[in-house]
Design a protein around this nucleic acid. Structure first.
Length: 209
DNA sequence: TGCCAGGCCCTCTTTAGGGCCTT
């Protein structure tokens, strides 16, 4: 069910984790998110969390999040309970959302919490809308679209802010380049489900609405 | 020390394989 009471408001989120798979025992170590309301960031959420074990040197280097930083952080359970409250009632966006959704589901299951929004993946959207981009990594798309950034990558809040800017850019490009008057979350989700070859026709129909 | 997952999507496809993307 697509939420309708907050159709123009979404939460853009990003996890930093100890690895790639919660099924292999990996945990979240940081959550960052912004609330996008009518094209503006109106709230931010950022919190480190202690996974209960030491993270690898690779993750320390990749994220800049050290074991020292995590030692005094609150537990995943404590942080995720707060985050569950933050996202309640809103649809969700993430870059390569299947990754973040797996960790969100796993961490919330651990505290018997859930969420009622739906996910849309900004990477799947970008693959369709920016087929000529050299790649569809978040950083690559930010460069490709000349989106301003502060040079911080692989930290949860910074990446969620960049994903939010990319989302707004895609909304703008749908208006300007495809004449879609009011692109919304529902249309964005529909685009990710549409084959590339069928996209021009689908956008033409949306432009007429 | 080296490796691990999973979903999407393309193609030299569909009785499959491999690259991309996330940490």
């Amino acid at each position: 069910m697509l939420l309708t009471q907050s159709a123009d408001t979404i939460i853009v989120l990003d996890f930093e984790t100890t690895g790639l798979s919660p099924n292999q025992g990996d945990r979240a170590i940081e959550i960052g998110a912004v609330k996008l309301e009518n094209g503006e960031v109106t709230e931010r959420f950022q919190q480190l969390m202690n996974p209960g074990f030491r993270v690898s040197g690779f993750i320390e280097n990749y994220t800049g999040i050290s074991n020292n930083m995590l030692r005094g952080a609150p537990s995943c359970e404590e942080v995720m309970a707060q985050f569950a409250d933050f996202i309640q009632g809103y649809n969700l966006v993430a870059h390569n959302a299947s990754f973040d959704q797996r960790f969100l589901d796993a961490e919330l299951e651990g505290i018997s919490r859930s969420y009622d929004g739906e996910f849309v993946c900004s990477m799947l959207l970008a693959r369709r809308l920016y087929q000529n981009a050299p790649n569809h990594k978040l950083g690559g798309l930010v460069e490709y679209k000349n989106i301003s950034h502060d040079g911080v990558f692989h930290r949860a809040l910074a990446d969620s802010e960049m994903t939010a800017k990319l989302w707004l850019q895609m909304l703008d490009d749908l208006k300007v380049e495809h004449q879609v008057t009011q692109p919304d979350f529902k249309l964005m989700k529909k685009i990710t489900k549409t084959a590339k070859a069928a996209l021009p026709q689908m956008l033409k129909r949306s432009a007429k609405c």
